[in-house]
Computed example of a mutant assay.
Amino acid sequence: MSIKVLVVDDSALIREVLSRTLGKDGDIVVVGTAEDPIDARSKVKDLNPDVVTLDIEMPNMNGLQFLDKLMRLHPLPVVMVSTLTTKGASETLLALELGAVDFVAKPNASLSGGLDAFGENLRQKVRAAAHSDVKGRALKAPTAKVPVRTAAAPNGALIAIGASTGGVEAIRVVLSQMPPDCPPIVIAQHMPAGFTSRFAGRLDELTELKVVEAEDRMPLLAGHAYVARGDFHLRVERSSGQLKCRVTQDELMSGHRPSVDVLFESVAKTVGPMAVGAILTGMGRDGARGLKLMREAGAYTVGQSQASALVYGMPRVAFEEGAVIEQAPVEGIAARLAAALTRLKSAA
């Protein structure tokens, strides 16, 4: 069955480009377009789309206000179409916190790979959004936040986290429960260049940890989290007896850069049984192979459970391939990681 999409953008040109691009493969049908949220509100009711693409800057009511109302009154999978600016990145992250499934960077003259690459990316994200559990997430009662009191571990321990679609919010939940005495955390979240710096900054604002965008050769310190830069791989290496970031732009792995597999594989090789790892919500299979290598190297591994994952793709593959020791709801993952670190400390 075709995926029905409503395109919301105040630019007639962008509406035309998105409509033509979305319909290219035949499995996605644009059932309507809207030039502003007022127009969109009536068309959501009349057309009952499976997915909405939404611009942020629009007349009458901006996209964030509309998204907030939509997710409270008529939750639907929404893919934001965002500008590659500092302001655009900040607003996009707020949209993800409000309930948007994912985002794409609005096409422009400097877009890497041109319109074909943009179109393929947009269609993949719309397909993932159509299979996401937005309504289930909206219906779930909020879980009381129970921060972990301590995640102390022996020197040389490390936490590795990987995610894709839905991961911005899932990572926030996990990190917000981690105390500042935890070992270093390395994160690979599928996100394009231009957004990861603001993502790290937002996590830094919302958690007790010091969160930064990873830089090459940066030492990994306790109480700090390091986010892979968009369009770059993040690896962990040991140099002069200290764990450090390696940031490179070699070929895509598992279809991605940054790749969760690349990060997890380096953790398995460099940190081995002193690591703990979590694979969170996302479409596809990136991370399953690397997490299995971590488990085989003696690391504790956990996958986000189906009931709490916006898109149960990456965690499902990891579970089916024997890469995870256990599955847990996202609000329970920090406690699982902390317990595994406590066992490491007891054994040290």
Rank of each mutant, 00 (worst) to 15 (best):
M1R: 13
I3P: 01
D10Y: 04
V17I: 14
L18K: 01
T21D: 07
I28S: 03
D36G: 11
R41V: 08
M58I: 11
P59V: 13
M61R: 14
L64N: 01
H74M: 13
L76Q: 05
V79S: 05
M80C: 06
T85V: 13
T86V: 15
T92H: 04
T92R: 03
G99I: 05
V101K: 00
V101M: 08
V104F: 05
A109R: 14
S110C: 09
R127D: 04
R137I: 11
V148L: 14
P154Q: 07
A157D: 04
A163I: 11
I171Q: 01
V174D: 04
P179T: 07
I185A: 03
Q189V: 07
T196R: 06
T196Y: 01
A200H: 01
E205P: 06
T207P: 11
E208W: 10
K210G: 08
V212S: 12
P219W: 12
Y226W: 02
Y226M: 09
A228E: 00
L234H: 09
G241S: 09
M253I: 15
V260E: 08
D261V: 10
V262E: 12
S266Q: 11
V271W: 07
P273G: 10
I279Q: 00
L280Y: 09
K292Y: 02
M294L: 10
Q306G: 14
A309D: 06
G322K: 07
E326R: 15
R336C: 14
A347R: 12
